[in-house]
Amino acid sequence: MSQSFITIRDLFFSRGKREIFSGISLDIPAGKVTAIMGPSGTGKTTLLRLIGGQLKPSQGTLSVEGLEIPKLNRKQLYQARRRMGMLFQSGALLTDLNVFENITFPIREHFDFPESMIRDIVLMKLELVGLRGARNLTPSELSGGMARRVALARAIALDPLLMMYDEPFTGLDPVTLGTIVSLIKKLNQSLGLTSVVVSHDIHETFSIADYVCILSEGKVAATGTPEELMNSNSAFVQQFVQGKPDGPMPFHYAANDYIQDIMKGAE
């Protein structure tokens, strides 16, 4: 296994009274695509926010490239974030700027490049996601899939070492889905960056991931390559991978006895 880019040890995090992570440990290898999977509500997106330093864990360590993220001060954190890119589920494009200006935004904020150079960078990034022709559209004129591709171009505008994708496959038509999947793979190979994909779409995720980590109830339930997980003999992994409705993972939210509950209404 190659050297680890992100190292997480005994991480605890809770939101209000609800404990989201109770001691997870995880290594994300450099230069590979690692998928974080798990049922809804297991804190997959929260994990990305912890890596990005937008949330602070209550206990445990989390380091990116050897930098202890929760211990950085504001300036160091912003410095570290310049090397991270994040694709949000909604795209999160700035609605008062058009496509071109959205991609120039991070460049202009951080560098004093001449206008022609900025234009070159932006057009290169747009060409990569196939939207060079859409540069003058406003975010409200884009379809969901296009918005996500523009957001992807913006996320790689600063040439990050680490790309995080938050649910990149949800709510897309099959064709757009295919392009996003191949884009993630292509970017990982051509730019040599480390990718973390958060998703619960088994098929697409397994097709591009080098490593998969399944989270459940605040713990790491299983890790391994897609093949290893497919052939795993753990009941939980089999339920998750094959999408069976019943198994170790309960379908019902914790409740008291069904018969008793029903009878209460009859009384």
Binding site: R49, G52, Q54, R74, Y78, Q79, R81, R82, M84, G85, M86, F88, Q89, S90, A92, L93, L94, T95, F105, P106, E109, H110, A151, R154, A155, L158
Partner: peptide, 21 residues
């Protein structure tokens, strides 16, 4: 609305402080 549409969070991840910007 910028917060609801994750624009502020995305700025943070682009290393731009949304409070200052």
């Amino acid at each position: 609305l910028m917060k609801a549409t994750e624009q502020l969070a995305s700025m943070e991840m682009m290393a731009v402080d949304p409070i200052r910007r």
